[in-house]
Design a protein around this nucleic acid. Structure first.
Lengths: 192, 192
DNA sequence: CACCTTAAAGCACGGTTATTGCGTTTAGGT
DNA sequence: ACCTAAACGCAATAACCGTGCTTTAAGGTG
């Protein structure tokens, strides 16, 4: 019996996908979000609009797809020797990238064309993965280490909430304070 | 000298605004988000499309406007006699309302048509206001009480983050746990 | 109370976009 | 080298978005 090919990752398909993605990013950076339209993306990518509708089905799904790829961290968190330094540096960089106007726009796009929540879930998984690397290092150093869920609740969630709902008055000091409070709380219940 | 009338709140304008808002809510609940379009809303509201463009300028701004009004709490938090009960009850109700499919949709709409972030800021202000009422009661009872910012970071932000980015596995127990952890942390540094 | 000013709503139209049917190309397997 | 079907290109259609101009009526004035 023959295997069913569910998707064609090679050759023309891959070329079209890459071309469309870069076209979307270019238009976003050059003319802003409102200028991104299917015919324009298609023209810039050297593709017909119908191709985009067949592959992505919707402009918002395409934007969400591009946004998630854009928000994926391209490098592992740096190692500064201890948990406090590692988490602080990561949180500062995260807040800096995400709170920029383009960062907020990408987050909103990722949330938008996402009926089942899988794209937004992928964004959250990226952050959890990065934090997990940092925490695993700390465990290796036998430091007192919170778990990933607590770190997400105490550090990532407050930053993201403020980025989305209260974008005024966000700075690196806020990120540092969240990390400090997370680790201080852990210190009060030291492991035996 | 004469005062400049900046806006006309009475008579026809108010009638049109109410009619358009209810039309949007009806279409949202009957046919879903994708069916909401300016001509359809206009037809249902007994209004011409140009009126909507003049007043709101954009479909997303209209949706954002309706969403914010829908998310405004219509009643003060109930008084259960102590801070733990009050905050727990409020958090459970908040999570229940916001994590529903329609709640998530309204939140996304409020975030969307919102270039300057004022609508999203209003949503956050609603929650802060409700929490402030609860905390003010607790202070009146001379209970040990965290401040509003801490409560937002520890309770509201984690719930909202999970609603938006990780909608699976959310229940009242999570809300209770967040409130308990917030108040337990405060108990460790009792006021003199 | 009648008049005046002007914000707000209605009307009609042009331009652009979203969307689908059908034929052609080409990737992946036999 | 051939075959199948997945993916793409072309073209046409219907719907929507957005705007200039006209008409209505809200709120103030003499």
């Amino acid at each position: 019996m023959s295997r069913k090919p569910m998707v064609r990752p090679g050759g023309r398909s891959a070329r079209v996908q890459a071309s469309v993605h870069t076209a979307v990013r270019d238009i976003l950076s050059e003319r802003g979000r409102d200028a991104v339209t299917v015919p324009l993306v298609a023209q810039r990518a050297g593709v017909t609009p119908s191709t985009i509708y067949r592959r992505w089905g919707d402009l918002q799904e395409l934007l969400s797809d591009v946004a998630v790829e854009r928000l994926r961290p391209d490098t592992a968190p740096e190692d500064h020797g201890d948990l406090l330094s590692d988490l602080t540096a990561w949180a500062e960089q995260f807040l800096d990238e995400m709170s920029s106007p383009s960062g907020r726009a990408y987050i909103r796009d990722a949330l938008l064309g996402d009926p089942d929540g899988s794209n937004a879930g992928r964004c959250s998984a990226y952050a959890a993965e990065q934090i997990d690397v940092v925490l695993a290092r700390a465990i290796g150093r036998e430091e007192n280490t919170p778990d990933v869920e607590t770190a997400m609740d105490r550090v990532v969630a407050p930053m993201m909430y403020r980025i989305l709902f209260r974008p005024a008055g966000l700075d690196a000091a806020y990120a540092r304070r969240l990390v400090t409070e997370l680790l201080d709380a852990g210190e009060e219940h030291p492991l035996p």
